[in-house]
């Protein structure tokens, strides 16, 4: 706030009422009203964007989840029937299980790789080499997930893919990367993590740079070295960044769609079918928009619950300097 004049020293705009309680907030001055108006104007595009593209669709989905609608005919009120159908649909339940399994492995791997590489890049190395690594690790993130998945589908093809060809050179039999129930989910996780870890990596690099060198020096004077220093100093001080990276990572992972859709189309069987895939198939292939919205609402609730849990746990594990 640039206004240095205390509100108490201002000339009152009008005579104070005798009956007013002592704690009453004095009316804002014309200048502060102008500041508020300016702030509101600056925020308006963002607020309008959030309302139009986030709040309205969320409310719309909740309303639609209470209707049967197939696009062709008018919607008819269904009450909670769509939710009943969803809870009785084995494919939906399997997709939630797959999504949670995917989220656990993808986020854990993503954070582990990103943190390890960030620590490595933050070590001693020429500045130009550090820039090369930073760009290289971040680059996959700017590519389209669908395009990457198409390329990866070729690479991981069991019969004609480069990966199995290379493995064959060292005598390893072809691996059914995308056509075996066990391997398919692992492959989808790998492809996803390869593309996504660059974001967490950048966060960690920024977080590491924010840790004062004096603290590391003090730890060294106290005799801490290598791993001990990372566990006792770096990680606690990096915990706010870890929280942000894990929150964003989990929210993204719970909404995974492109990679399993292109790589395996949810198969074999339902082994890689995720919640967002089910939403897409139910709505746009089977024309059951009400049920698709119900699944969407459940996913929304799940994401909210997981995020709330993370913030609750963060009180114990996150240390702010």
């Amino acid at each position: 706030m640039t206004d240095t004049q205390s509100p108490d020293t201002r000339v009152p705009a009008r005579r104070p009422r005798p009956a007013a309680p002592p704690a009453a907030v004095p009316p804002p001055s014309a200048r502060s009203r102008g500041t508020r108006l300016l702030a509101t104007l600056f925020l308006a595009p963002t607020i309008v964007g959030i309302v139009v593209f986030t709040v309205v669709p969320i409310v719309g989905s909740v309303v639609l989840s209470l209707y049967h609608w197939d696009v062709i005919d008018s919607p008819s009120f269904a009450g909670g029937a769509n939710y009943g159908e969803v809870f009785g649909d084995e494919t939906v339940l399997v997709s939630f299980r797959n999504t949670l399994v995917f989220m656990v492995f993808a986020v854990a791997l993503q954070l582990l790789i990103a943190l390890t590489l960030a620590l490595a890049v933050n070590g001693r190395m020429p500045v130009w080499l550090r820039s090369v690594f930073r760009s290289a690790f971040f680059f996959p993130l700017v590519l389209s997930a669908a395009s990457i998945s198409v390329v990866m589908k070729y690479l991981f093809n069991q019969d004609f893919g480069v990966v199995n060809w290379l493995l064959g050179l060292v005598g390893i039999a072809p691996v059914p990367w995308l056509t075996s129930e066990n391997a398919a989910m692992a492959t989808v996780v790998l492809v996803y993590v390869w593309q996504q870890f660059g974001f967490s990596f950048l966060l960690f690099v920024g977080g590491l740079n924010n840790i004062p060198k004096e603290i590391h020096e003090a730890a060294s004077l106290d005799g801490a070295t290598g791993l001990r220093k990372h566990l006792s100093v770096t990680l606690p001080l990096l915990s706010p960044t870890l929280l942000v990276a894990s929150v964003v990572g989990i929210i993204n992972a719970l909404q995974v769609f492109e990679q399993p859709y292109v790589l395996t189309n949810g198969g074999p069987g339902d082994s890689t079918r995720t919640v967002v895939m089910v939403i897409y198939e139910t709505a746009f292939e089977q024309l059951r928009f009400g049920e698709a919205s119900a699944v969407g609402v459940l996913l929304f609730v799940l994401i909210m619950a997981v995020t709330a849990l993370q913030f609750r746990l963060s009180r114990r594990f996150v240390h702010y300097q």
Binding site: E181, G269, D270, E281, E285, L287
Partner: peptide, 24 residues
């Protein structure tokens, strides 16, 4: 749409491992 989805899903599962045909 549903018929095709069911066919693709279970065909993949049926041929993913030996003896998976009949259960799939």
């Amino acid at each position: 749409a549903e018929v095709e989805q069911v066919l693709l899903k279970h065909t993949g599962a049926a041929l993913s491992s030996p003896r998976a045909v009949r259960p799939a």
